[in-house]
């Protein structure tokens, strides 16, 4: 029931929206990062020799010294759970019996935020080693969701 129907003396109001549709590019660093996931199943970083840091996902510049990065590194498909959370509520406010597990996975000097799968919530701990589970190659489209989730290394 609208506010007006509940209370005829309420001030009149209406709904408006701010329509926004954006078309994003991966950028020069992202283009190579996502093509590599899609075509090779590899995760790429870039290394700054001056600051001795490996950026994952790959970037074309070092955020510390602003130098141009040209050393591309295959950083492998494993990492460590740096921290995690268990999501017990859906976006519509409904409760989840089985929580969704979200983790920050350290790879190189960076990493990815992603889901954890093939693991019980109570088994997840900080520091555990995990590996990427990619979608089958034919289904990959150059998206962060080409990674289904990370799972513990058996």
């Amino acid at each position: 029931m609208t506010l007006l129907k509940r209370d005829p003396k309420a001030p009149q109001a209406w709904l408006g929206n701010l329509p926004v549709t954006s078309r994003y590019t991966f950028g020069l660093g992202g283009e190579r990062f996502f093509r590599s996931i899609k075509d090779e199943g590899e995760i790429l970083g870039t290394h700054c020799p001056k600051c001795d840091r490996t950026y994952v996902p790959s970037t074309i510049f070092c955020e510390r010294c602003l130098g141009k990065l040209e050393e591309w590194v295959d950083v492998g498909t494993t990492g460590n759970v740096h921290t995690f959370t268990l999501l017990y509520e859906n976006y519509d406010g409904s409760h989840r019996e089985e929580p969704e597990i979200i983790a920050f996975v350290s790879i190189g000097d960076g990493g990815l935020v992603h889901r954890l799968g093939d693991v019980e919530p109570e088994e997840v701990e900080i520091g555990m080693e995990v590996e990427v589970v990619f979608k089958p190659k034919a289904e990959r489209e150059g998206s962060i969701l080409d990674i289904v989730h990370f799972r513990p290394i058996a």
Partner: peptide, 18 residues
């Protein structure tokens, strides 16, 4: 239409200025 992200465009200009 730049292929670069907004962040990469910022870096390119900043790098040149330095």
């Amino acid at each position: 239409r730049a292929q670069e992200t907004a962040k990469e465009l910022s870096w390119q200009a900043t790098h040149m200025a330095l």
